[in-house]
């Protein structure tokens, strides 16, 4: 029973992390139908920036986290304005080729600068170890992830539901043409969202370095996970990807624990089945276009 709860806890932490990592991709895919396979590269950038700040410059971990967010967001907006912007109306094949190219470049640049081995971020002592609640082992670090990602999720949800920017974004997702006809500056909305999504990915990369492992191949290794979250969750809502992330996180942790020989296999199979069964995602509405 307690192992079950521990697995559930770890799975939730993992899932929340996946959500923060991939929510930016959900927006890119949903808003502009842009297939951004390089999303993981932003996460990797955040992770490495945090690692360098903490390990080399001695910046406290909790200061480095927002800096990782800001740095990734800045990289995101620069990339969006210089490169991505020109490719929104291209075919998915072009977008895929372009972003694969970016991934290859990001992987080798990081490999060149930081070396190919996995790196770890020195965590403050207060985040290490675990404590027991009713006999269930709770890792401090994972608890922190759940708290931070939970707050972020809440923040994202509230922003989307209650602010003017959120309603503009939702309008633009639903129908970009009508939205721009109503005077919404769709490219601007998209640029901001792209930057924010990249920032979130960077933050997720920094937070996840401890759990997911951080090496130059991060964008390739986790690309499929981000895509699963988005395709299974559907890209029209934010709750869809959230639920999909939790599901994926718990399934992955449980799968690795109970059927270690089949772990990833189960996940890919489930993804393919869901894609066949509901092409718009498990929680997605039926496409109106």
């Amino acid at each position: 029973m307690t192992t079950l709860l521990t697995i559930l806890f770890d799975g939730v932490a993992y899932g929340m992390l996946l959500f923060v990592l991939s929510s930016g991709l959900a927006v890119t895919l949903g808003l502009m139908n842009f297939v951004n396979l390089a999303h993981g590269a932003f996460a990797m950038a955040g992770g490495y920036i945090c690692a360098v700040l903490v390990n080399k410059s001695g910046v406290p971990f909790f200061v480095a986290l927002p800096m990782a967010f800001i740095a990734s967001a800045l990289i995101g907006i620069v990339m969006e304005q210089t490169l991505y912007k020109h490719l929104y109306h291209r075919s998915p094949l072009d977008q895929v080729l372009f972003t694969i190219g970016l991934v290859f470049m990001a992987v080798t640049v990081v490999d060149y600068m930081m070396g190919s081995s996995q790196i770890f971020i020195h965590l403050p002592a207060m985040l290490e170890g675990q404590f027991n609640i009713f006999g269930v082992g709770v890792g401090r670090y994972r608890l922190m992830i759940i708290v931070i990602c939970g707050l972020l999720t809440l923040g994202i949800q509230l922003t989307l539901a209650n602010t003017r920017f959120g309603s503009r974004l939702r309008a633009a997702v639903d129908d970009p043409r009508a939205a721009s006809g109503l005077g919404i500056n769709v490219p601007q909305v998209f640029a901001l969202t792209f930057a924010f999504g990249s920032g979130l990915a960077g933050l997720g990369g920094a937070l996840g370095a401890e759990i997911l492992g951080l090496d130059p191949y991060f964008p390739l290794k986790f690309m499929i996970y981000f895509l699963i979250v988005v395709t299974v969750g559907g890209s029209q809502t934010i709750t869809g990807p959230f639920l999909a992330s939790l599901l994926l996180g718990i399934a992955d942790v449980a799968g690795k624990y109970y059927v270690p020989k089949l772990g990833a296999f189960v996940i890919y199979t489930v993804m393919i089945v869901i894609l066949i069964w509901r092409p718009n995602g498990l929680f997605g509405r039926v496409a109106q276009r």
Binding site: P92, V96, I224, T231, L262, F265, Y268, L275
Partner: peptide, 27 residues
């Protein structure tokens, strides 16, 4: 599986199948 759906789900399904086989070969 592949001929169904949009280009995006084609990409995902083909990618998924290749990863699946790699995983199988590994197991």
């Amino acid at each position: 599986l592949v001929i169904r759906g949009s280009e995006l789900s084609q990409l995902m399904v083909t990618l998924g199948i290749a990863l699946l086989l790699r995983e199988l070969a590994n197991k």
